[in-house]
Design a protein around this nucleic acid. Structure first.
Lengths: 340, 340
DNA sequence: CCACATTCTGACACCGGTGTCATAATGTGG
DNA sequence: CCACATTATGACACCGGTGTCAGAATGTGG
């Protein structure tokens, strides 16, 4: 059985390639009779147009690439979900490409990706959205891209972020208002700009409420559950034990909760725990985690949507937006009861 | 600035297109001098070959599509991770395509996907790996595909699964050996063949150990945390309360654990809980969940690898494998203490 | 130095569509 | 019924690479 191409359809229907192409793309100026005839042949021959040939002619692949390097799986899932929503709305598809930020191999890796698959645009998620090197490379190669949750400024490229510093400030303030003064903090991955921002929101809240910053209370994490478990151990071993812990994401907060529970500490009676992101795990555990809802899906959705508009030349101005992060209180934080 | 194509490179280097193409693909029979010259021009002009044109000529896209419709996000993450490993090893890329199994729109949806992006092959994850309709469609369209975790037999297509029935049998037997006789069960999504298999393993263990099956103890879930929460309520409201619960996946088990803890039940002292999959959440909560480790990544990795071999014509026989599921005991299950 | 094998190289068709433009068919008003 | 506008259709080049094959350049043995 021979492959069915536009030529076979044309011959079979007794029309030219171009007319078949017109029917294919719902172009005007085709008589109803001809259109019917061609459509019938489509069915008869079970014809599927070749997207590659079409892509070559139009210089489009209708594929967006999503770049990530993130220890938090749920973050990636949410990113994908937002990106897919925008892609499918505009008949685009999503290609995923995890890779490592570190090492000079990055540019080489992306270059190889572009040699392998033509991408109409790329979504950069943290930490790539902050990589000046990558941004410069993509500009040089004239690849459209959009940045998600980036801290750096770049007037020329699409960027959608949320206000992490403010979110961290609010959740810290929430703990302070509950009477906590000894609040431990677990940092995120040093390559991610969110890490610095959340830390700085934490510090600002302390300052505003006249609580002295104590570097002893700060542990280094990297957004993974595992790193949270290590930090949790550090923090819970402190004497005196802090009365509250604010972890830079929910995975690490969950790790603190697990260790605390293992050690017979009651949360939140003995110790309050707060996270960040509002990842699914925050409501899958007991007690549920007080956290900051970061609109990951929405950020990505907007970023990809704007990216597609830019690719289609329907948007000339560069979209830049900051979405709000919102405090969600659950059972893991409560009033600090002073020990008798 | 004009676009850099193979023609510009050829002209600039003073050779033919074909010679440039040879250098590009590391083909033999190019004199070292010529090769050097062309490579230098690549750099000078910052040339990136156009993957679409290449794809058209070779009739290849080097893209694999991954189809899924699964309420468990972590399952998808694991699938992707295994698929990506195989793809990158062979210089392929992965395009993800979530869509709904139900409704006649499925075939239309896939047809549209194939019209939009040329895919060299597709990985079908549950519940698609069990869809006869989809399998027939892909065969008709002569699209290569591999099935992951499917229960149905199809001699013509690649399939990698794990032994769910046996896994469910073992974990149920584990509970029985701990002295439990009243073991509740939460079913998975009815569209997934794993649901039936796990249920049947549970029943077989009861039979083998002379425990009467009680349909009162069976709740209907759908693999989502939310459905697990509903089932948990049903089960914990039973009088007398069962002494153990086996949920068809870890998310639902986590939901049971959460509700039990909320109700002041001690796990595993008052009630034992077991899950399935060994999802990350199984070890992120306290007590950790006893579960069956299903090699999701490995299944998908093997499936995609074989798929790529088949696409490349390096493999003519159809690979079919069943991997072992393994019992992992954690803190959520313990000896049943008879109430005094 | 010649006959022959081997290594390089390029001309050209082709992959399967789309864009441009000329021309054929049809419609409309006077 | 004609002049003209409008709609419908097809011829052909083109997108940017790869495959085939012929011919040129070079190497080898006698």
């Amino acid at each position: 059985m021979k492959k069915v191409t536009i030529n076979s359809v044309a011959t079979y229907a007794g029309v030219s390639k171009k007319t078949v192409s017109r029917v294919l793309n719902n172009e005007p100026n085709v008589s109803p009779a001809t259109r019917e005839k061609v459509l019938k042949v489509f069915k008869e021959l079970d014809y599927t147009p070749n997207p590659i040939a079409r892509g070559l002619a139009r210089n489009r692949s209708f594929i967006i690439g999503c770049l990530y390097d993130n220890p938090s799986k749920s973050y990636i899932t949410r990113v994908q979900s937002g990106a897919l929503e925008a892609c499918h709305k505009h008949n685009y598809n999503l290609l995923i490409h995890p890779c490592e930020l570190r090492g000079e191999a990055l540019i080489e890796n992306i270059e190889h990706l572009l040699t392998t698959s033509r991408l109409d645009g790329m979504v950069l998620t943290p930490p790539f959205s902050d990589s000046q090197e990558l941004i410069a490379f993509l500009k040089r190669k004239k690849i459209h891209f959009a940045r998600v949750a980036s801290a750096i400024e770049d007037k020329d490229s699409i960027s959608v972020r949320s206000n992490d510093e403010q979110g961290a400030f609010e959740i810290t303030e929430h703990l302070i208002k509950l009477g906590h003064t000894s609040i431990a903090f677990i940092k995120g991955h040093p390559d991610h700009s969110a890490t610095e921002q959340r830390f700085s929101g934490y510090q600002r809240a302390l300052t505003v409420h006249n609580i002295e910053f104590d570097s002893e209370l700060v542990a280094e994490g990297n957004f993974s559950y595992h790193s949270g478990a290590d930090s949790a151990k550090e923090i819970l071993d402190l004497q005196p034990t802090p009365s509250a812990v604010f972890a830079s994401n929910d995975y690490m907060a969950a790790a603190v909760l697990k260790l605390a529970t293992q050690r017979q500490l009651q949360v939140p009676k003995d110790i309050s725990i707060a996270g960040f992101d509002n990842a699914p795990i925050a409501r899958h555990i007991w007690p549920g985690l007080t956290t900051i809802a970061q609109p990951v899906e929405e950020m990505t959705r907007q970023a990809v949507e704007q990216l597609i508009l830019q690719i289609s030349d329907e948007q000339t101005s560069v979209y830049q937006a900051t979405l709000e992060a919102k405090l969600i209180t659950r059972e893991s934080t409560a009033k600090h009861l002073v020990d008798d």
